[in-house]
Design a protein around this nucleic acid. Structure first.
Lengths: 194, 194, 194, 194
DNA sequence: CATGAATGAGTGTTCATTCAT
DNA sequence: GATGAATGAACACTCATTCAT
């Protein structure tokens, strides 16, 4: 399995650094190879092509993301609490990794439609987590029984994503994690119904 | 003033069509020129460079957008009503113009960071509209006096934007405008506080 | 019509020179462009791709070849005489143009199968000339009425081609045109039957 | 002697198969190694480089070729008969081995000039056989005493080669061996003189 | 004003060969 | 002897922009 070989992760980490530092369109394969400390050709022993590096990058990082969120959610009983730790951890992970934040919020979105569609596939797993929390909240009557889960999920993800993107675009000048409670309040209010 | 000459709008409209049909990365200047019925060089009599076409496109369309929203907002007394007609009209304008929806939600986001920052400048005017409604709602006590306007604005815009993008990515298979009341409810609940 | 513009021929002539001097596999587009005195991109205003340059080169030169042969053949009454002037002129044209000889006999044959099949299409016109002479000779009873025209054509072309290739490979050390009468005698003896 | 080790022939046979199936330019060393059932590096224990595989392939196969022709020639008394069995066997060997025919007539000719010059060296042995027959024919007065042996050899080889190549390019749709008598007649007529 | 021919910088990917194991 | 992971040089083609007419 190539994914477990050290060079696989080495190349992905190099890609994050290069894309964060140079931007998506200036992230040439040769730059990534140099940063990873391998020859250009070695990249192609681990990845089908350049696009495959970027998709794998997203999969790899999003996997860590989802594992972490899953873990903290499991530790909470109430849907509202689950939502809070989700927002907190979402903000925290990106706060702690400046390069990852820039790459996922700004750079990778410049990729072409095909790549973005594949990235969306990876995102679906995250969106399902949101759905699960919302359904659980409806079940426990924390959230309105009339809640349109699809729309609520779009509110939750749209709000979180917009908040992070704004923060990144403002050069991360303020404390993102500190915003979690207020964001969480907006979201639960939205879901609770009147 | 170049903006009032017929070829200015002719080129912008050609750009929307070409980008919608071919995608951002396949929208060459020569294609846009051909669609507009002018020579390649003529483009540069009206626009500084290719990026300038795209920014102008966004400004032009967003201007229409904001004018329309402004108009319908003015006709409503309550902040909640203003928010509803804003969502309704946002959805309606993009529902009515498939090409514009594809271009703004998917294609233009593939542009580089610099262009996206400039697009964000244009967006600010729209975000100010949202702010005004929110502040008005706080004033009229429709919304919580503790509402963090910046965060609430991010929720409003993030939710609307995510809803439209999801709809476009799902090939506009369902009625977007019909979702406006439910989305509106989520947002006002969020802003109202418990 | 691009074929009549000066740069079209300019690029083809540059290609002959570059291929003759550097060999097929070292004839980069940029070298050809430089030799032709145009920018790399200009090549692509006149040719679809690199392969198209080579096919066009062959068509262009073979056209001149066939026109010349056609002309001299027409001036002769007997099939045997026609064959002689064909051989003489075939040898003469390549004797007079060292670079063309190297390109057609050695370099262009290194091209891939697809290109060679297209080159063969162009050659067919020449082979038809040979066929016409042979059929004419059978009609005038100069050649055996039992002659298998297809095989005889392969003998004529195979012998001429092998003779020229050997001459080029021997660095053109001897007088190719002087061999025409002897070659002609071999061929007419072959066709005449016992 | 490496040539007698089993892997030597194994690799050459693999090369014939891979080149016949994929074409000269798609016959990578790694493909040949896989087909031969050895590691890439193993190739280089038996051959200096890729070119060396191809030259050895040609030598090996041409050796068999020449041995066979030598054998059948020795059994005939008259030069004309020797020529006939040469043509017959040349056609027969390639008729019986489709892959070898494709490789020698089409694929190997795409190799670069240097390789083709080395291949020509190997061919010389075959051409000497032709020369011997021609000289023997002159001696026995079957052929014209004025025959230019070099040119006649080019006719013999050029005709045979062109006939085989045309047959391969026509996807071997007709019976090549059946053409031998007619080709032989053309050649002996040519050599006999008036 | 309008044209469109010409420019030329920039990059992902392949594959013969090596060499540490 | 045998392996196969790693190497790194090499190149066709696109397209935003210019400028002579």
């Amino acid at each position: 399995m190539k994914k477990n070989k050290p060079k696989y992760k080495q190349i992905i980490d190099a890609a994050v650094i290069i894309i964060a530092e140079n931007g998506y369109h200036q992230a040439q394969v040769s730059k990534i190879a140099k940063q990873a400390g391998v020859a250009d050709g070695t990249i192609y022993l681990y990845f089908k092509n350049k696009e495959d590096i970027l998709i794998s990058l997203f999969e790899e990082k999003m996997g860590i993301f989802i594992d972490k969120i899953n873990e903290v959610i499991a530790g909470k009983q109430k849907a509202s609490e689950k939502l809070l730790v989700m927002v907190e951890n979402h903000f925290k992970i990106l706060s702690d990794d400046h390069q990852l934040a820039v790459v996922t919020q700004l750079e990778l979105r410049q990729s072409n439609k095909e790549l973005r569609l594949k990235i969306n596939d990876v995102l679906k797993e995250y969106l399902q987590l949101v759905d699960e929390i919302l359904l659980y909240g409806i079940e426990t009557e924390e959230f309105s029984k009339d809640l349109d889960v699809r729309l609520a999920r779009q509110m939750v993800f749209g709000t979180i994503d917009e908040t992070v993107t704004t923060w990144v675009m403002n050069e991360e000048k303020y404390d993102l994690v500190a915003l979690a409670p207020a964001v969480h309040k907006l979201l639960t209010n939205g879901c609770r119904g009147l």
